[in-house]
Design a protein around this nucleic acid. Structure first.
Length: 819
RNA sequence: GCGGGCGUGGCGGAACUGGUAGACGCGCGAGGUUUAGGUCCUCGUGGCCACCUGGCUGUGGGGGUUCGAGUCCCUCCGCCCGCACCA
């Protein structure tokens, strides 16, 4: 017997640090930026936001990434696999407000616990590229990128109605407002008119949309981005208010329904509304309505099923297609942000306009046939429109009407986007300073590049006051204009942290470059990221912003890539009893105690084994123990075999029954390789290694060849290495004296995958009645005859007419009988 | 409302182009090792019936295509996620 119970004990607390030391001392995972003949690969997990301790989602994210990195290395690629920290942001600042501890301190503590975790988990990271986005050596280049965009007109300042969180006392990007509330603190968001900094991401709307076709991302993520960009094709049509002599263009996707317009509606925020009502006798009522509409929260106003309200403005516009006078209304179902902030209302063919018309007793005119009742939004033939268009299918009429508008100068084809420019300024302390100066003479002046970084000053009071806490650092704020030299004041807003994380993957490529953000030759060697891995929660924000940055930087000549992330993998959440883990529920599982108790390998392999990594999975304490048992079994078998089995050559041919374990080993190689290369099926890959180990256990009781058993165990260790690197390394080393990470990924020998016989499934009328070993090369006729011979098959066809026989070579025979 | 995804044992989940449903693991049951517990090892484990070879049934419900359906088609039900008055 070669198993030992007591003599070989699996001790991860000894094995794991021992190999981690080797990897650290030999800088095993460090990778050079030099030109390289072979294939390179950039494997990247979303960098952690260092707030508190790592949680179970981090364990899963980085276990997936490390498995991919290892697999890429062992299949012959040079792999860039770096790590860093997204360290600026509100949680650290809020913590500072509460405790008085400097955000840098609490952030640093958290970074250290993340770094300790990555080391304890044995992640194969190139530590020479480590970065924190809060370090001046990093944000110097964040500021540099800002200036590149500023000089190119892609970063600009404007006064706008912006989202304001009263609790965090800062503005928010549209993307950070969820259901009318601040995504961080949950406070109801207000609308304020403020002068803010924006990135002109809308210039890139079409490319951000079109290039989705070139990247290999999950379809649902692409769909979310498409919806977010929200491209609509239609027309801009000019309605003139002759009473005041002003043209009001509207955007519509349905110019085919222009003849059905019966009124006109403007958003309450529209700057002209009060002016229009002035002198009409409606001004009082309009004023009250607007005041009410503007104080209502976004959420209250946003509900689609809310009853429609509005007020007559006392004015009219002329419908350009037929000269009709349409009454103008102000109503809060029209949004200022979308289109022109005004709409033509076609109640017969739009649900919202219909509801409004019903509420205010406005006329409804059908101009498209179809549907049982109004409103009807479908296709049909034009009626009640104009002799030139009546009788036309509406799709056709749509083009014809736009052409007509264009010729008459009353409108033109137009495209509208839901996407807004990215509001990047924040009135908070713990962020990257915006590198500009405000000068009375020269206006907004960029800080010269050689003066970067503009270092975040030290302050005592982090309390938000509606202006940036930086304004309190008077010595810092007071400066000289780089252009005219006169006294000037620094910009006191800081950047949204999403700016920091929109380019960190670029800095990794050349992280220690002090002369530039990166060397273009180096960055082009690595980009785009081959495999990006992270949570779906970043499907819109981070991923869209990063794509915008890369496209803009390409246009400015700083790099060649069109897209940052060629492949994206979004991992599912780990739940506890089906519920999301959260501190408030007290059901949080922390990865580090698991690592301390069972070892890093158990923790890593378990989160990959629990289910398909892109799906949510439920945590099970006993499941972890199962993984620990399996790794222990593997290690003990390897240690036992290394000690007691002679190191004989591996049998070179499949042989007979005694070599089933050898065939199983090659089967496992094939299975694991396919699971890794084709998709991220780590759960079934690990299951295949378990099957192989089970086969070794079974085989051991027979008279297996020692060489075959050793080979099977070494193969199991080799295949398991990406998921449980320490125990695999140790087992492989015990068996072979070699280092598994230096070994090429195994490849299956076809001769061992084939077999002389297979199990023939014998069906009668589609039901399995027997199974029998059949020779692999047997003819269809032979298989049919063999199936018919089986006693239980006979019992079911006896006395009946055989209608048909279906043979699936190598698989089954189905005999169809009647009677 | 629009868009995306999902539904398989007590549980997590397997099943490539239609071809042995339930791999692998957890849990559970029986046995062995052990002074005992734990560890470790062996066997069993969808349900119902027969319990010896076997039979029936079973992948959310109903219907269809097929020699054969978890897989394809229609229909209904349920759950999850994203967006939501976007003109």
């Amino acid at each position: 017997m070669l198993s030992g119970h007591m003599e070989h004990r699996y001790d991860p607390s000894e094995i794991e640090p021992r190999w981690q030391r080797v990897w650290a001392e030999e800088r095993t995972w460090q990778v050079s930026n030099d030109a390289f003949d072979g294939e390179s690969s950039y494997v990247l997990e979303m960098l952690p936001y260092p707030s508190g301790e790592p949680h179970i989602g981090h364990l899963k994210n980085y276990s997936v990434g490390d498995a991919v990195a290892h697999f890429h290395r062992r299949t012959g690629r040079r792999v860039l696999h770096p790590m860093g920290y997204d360290a600026f942001g509100l949680p650290a600042e809020n913590h500072a407000i509460k405790t008085g501890q400097h955000p840098r301190e609490s952030t640093q503590q958290s970074i250290e616990s993340f770094r300790r975790a990555f080391h304890a988990l044995g992640m194969s990271i190139d530590w020479t590229r480590e970065l924190g986005t809060h370090e001046p050596s990093y944000y110097r280049w964040t500021q540099w990128i800002f200036l590149q965009l500023f000089h190119a007109g892609l970063a600009y300042r404007k006064e706008a109605a912006v989202n304001w969180c009263p609790n965090d006392a800062t503005v928010l990007a549209n993307e950070q407002v969820v259901g009318g509330r601040c995504e961080r603190c949950g406070a109801e968001v207000e609308v304020r008119q403020l002068e803010q900094w924006f990135f002109r991401i809308t210039d890139y709307a079409d490319r951000l949309l079109d290039d989705l076709a070139t990247i290999e991302w999950p379809e649902h993520v692409k769909t979310m981005q498409r919806n977010w960009i929200g491209r609509s094709e239609g027309a801009e049509v000019v309605f003139r208010c002759e009473e005041v002599g002003v043209d009001y263009p509207v955007f519509t996707t349905r110019p085919d329904t222009l003849f059905g317009a019966t009124f006109f509606v403007m958003a309450p925020e529209h700057p002209d509304v009060e002016r229009l009502a002035a002198g009409t006798g409606q001004e009082e009522e309009v004023h009250r309505y607007i005041a009410h509409a503007l104080t209502a929260s976004k959420e209250d106003r946003g509900a689609a099923d809310k009853p429609k309200t509005g007020v007559f403005l006392g004015r009219h516009v002329v419908n350009p297609v037929n000269g009709e006078r349409l009454p103008m209304y102000v109503a809060d179902y029209v949004l200022l942000e979308y289109g022109t902030g005004a709409i033509m209302a076609v109640p017969a063919h739009d649900e919202r306009d219909f509801a409004f018309a019903q509420a205010y007793d406005l006329p409804v005119r059908r101009v498209i046939e179809g549907g049982d009742e109004l409103p009807y939004a479908g296709d049909g033939t034009l009626v009640n429109s104009h002799p030139d268009f009546d009788g036309m299918p509406n799709r056709e009429a749509l083009g014809a009407i736009v052409d007509w508008l264009d010729r008459e100068g009353k409108g033109h084809a137009s495209i509208n986007y839901r996407l807004r420019d990215w509001l990047l300024s924040r009135q908070r302390y713990w962020g990257c300073p915006i590198p500009v100066v405000h000068c009375q003479q020269c206006g907004v002046v960029a800080v010269p590049e050689e003066q970067l970084p503009v270092v975040l000053p030290e302050i005592d009071d982090y309390q938000p006051k509606g202006r940036s806490p930086l304004a309190a650092a008077e010595d810092w704020v007071a400066t000289r204009c780089p252009s005219c030299g006169r006294p000037a004041r620094r910009e006191t807003d800081t950047m949204d942290t999403f700016v920091d994380s929109s380019w960190y993957f670029l800095r990794y490529c050349d992280a220690r470059n002090h002369q530039a953000a990166w060397d273009p030759a180096v960055i082009n060697r690595w980009l785009p990221v081959d495999q990006y891995i992270g949570g779906v929660e970043h499907a819109i924000l981070h991923l869209l912003y990063a794509r915008f940055f890369v496209k803009a930087l390409k246009d400015l000549g700083h790099l060649d890539a069109d897209e940052p992330f060629q492949k994206l993998f979004t991992q599912g959440m780990i739940t506890r009893d089906g519920a999301k883990m959260s501190k408030s529920k007290g059901n949080v599982i922390s990865p580090m105690p698991i690592v301390e108790r069972y070892g890093a390998d158990t923790a890593r392999a378990y989160v990959l084994f629990i289910g398909p990594p892109d799906q949510d999975a439920d945590w099970s304490d006993t499941g972890v123990e199962g993984m620990h048992r399996f790794l222990g079994r593997l290690w003990r078998l390897a240690a036992g075999a290394a000690q007691t089995l002679p190191d004989e050559p591996v049998p070179a041919s499949p042989g007979a029954d005694g070599l089933r374990v050898l065939r199983k080993a090659h089967w496992a190689i094939e299975k694991v390789t396919n699971d890794m290369a084709g998709r991220f099926a780590f759960n079934t890959a690990i299951a295949a290694v378990m099957e192989l180990i089970n086969e070794v256990t079974t085989e051991k009781r027979g008279d297996a060849e020692p060489g075959a058993v050793r080979f099977a165990l070494a193969t199991a260790a080799s295949l398991l290495f990406p998921f449980a690197p320490h125990v695999s390394t140790d087992a492989y080393h015990l068996l072979t004296g070699r280092r598994v990470w230096e070994e090429a990924w195994p490849s299956a020998d076809d001769r061992f995958l084939e077999s002389d016989t297979f199990e023939l499934v014998c069906q009668v009328n589609g039901k399995v009645r027997d199974r029998v070993d059949a020779p692999t090369g047997a003819s269809d006729a032979d298989l049919r005859a063999l199936a018919r011979e089986q006693p239980n098959v006979q019992a079911h066809i006896d006395g009946k007419d055989v209608v048909k026989e279906i043979v699936v070579p190598g698989k089954l025979v189905n005999i169809v009988v009647r009677g």
